[in-house]
Design a protein around this nucleic acid. Sequence first.
DNA 1: TTTCTTGTTGCGAAAATTCGCAACAAGACG
DNA 2: CGTCTTGTTGCGAATTTTCGCAACAAGAAA
Lengths: 145, 145
Amino acid sequence: MSHNTTEINRQLRKSGYRVTPQRQLILDAVCQLGEHVTPEAVYDHVHRIAPTLSRATVYRVLHFLTEQRILAMVYMADGRLAYEMAGPEPHHHLVCRSCDSLLELPHSVLRSFRRTMDAQYDFEIDVSHLSFFGHCTDCRDSAGA
Amino acid sequence: MSHNTTEINRQLRKSGYRVTPQRQLILDAVCQLGEHVTPEAVYDHVHRIAPTLSRATVYRVLHFLTEQRILAMVYMADGRLAYEMAGPEPHHHLVCRSCDSLLELPHSVLRSFRRTMDAQYDFEIDVSHLSFFGHCTDCRDSAGA
DNA sequence: TTTCTTGTTGCGAAAATTCGCAACAAGACG
DNA sequence: CGTCTTGTTGCGAATTTTCGCAACAAGAAA
Ligand SMILES: [Mn+2]
Ligand SMILES: [Mn+2]
Ligand SMILES: [Zn+2]
Ligand SMILES: [Zn+2]
């Protein structure tokens, strides 16, 4: 696993939460399984190691770790929910509806858009992890609208 | 109901689809129930009129009418899916995570953002109906981050 | 140590959503 | 009219996700 375990544990305990074996297992699973991991994939993975760990706990922990900004949540092209490690700097995705390819966007590309919303509507957009759907370079010409 | 029934019917038939009583009922329901209508609300409404109309059909028709761009789909603050009439001009929403208030955004505010994505990433963002989450004017001062 | 508080889990039930399939119905075509 | 094709539905089962609640466990307090 590639996440800073001790730092995360400190952060959780500092907020009054507990570092349980279940939470560690689930976090490790997301980390190992890569980008855009579904709850079911997490369950399959951890269930092999800890057979009593329930589905409800998987859903609850994924939710919880997202609230703690340790995980990030994202809607995929098919509408389902997935998770991935959050990382220190936010990033976003361009998802192609034709080929399901993923492009990663740096957070910086949203700065001017957020400023505009702030100025025109006095609304502070929370952009920790957005996905924009559309059509990528390769699919633009081949696919008719 | 306030939607142009004959125009929609023509559009569907032209594409080889059929205008069934179920589809008409469901479309009327979304239209009457207003913005951000959940599948369950649609089902409750139409089920009183047509008791044999099944939940599966509600989900299927909402999906179908969204593909046909007659309805628009939107994620609400709690993560659930909702639908509303699409209208000729796309629009978007600012959803406050504190008070659940809704601000409607004209499509024009996304033009420069789309142009940037197109120019920098050669990616054409499909923005028929987006929701951005964050904090509105009233909630920005009262709520601490 | 014992007691208390509170966060956390497992379980099973409930609710929400999707799926497969047979039956139906609209329309084309003869 | 009868026949075919194909889009559509209802039903029930399967799957996914949420909920309620009792039991558990970590840590603070006594
Ligand atoms: Mn990501
Ligand atoms: Mn809308
Ligand atoms: Zn593509
Ligand atoms: Zn607000």
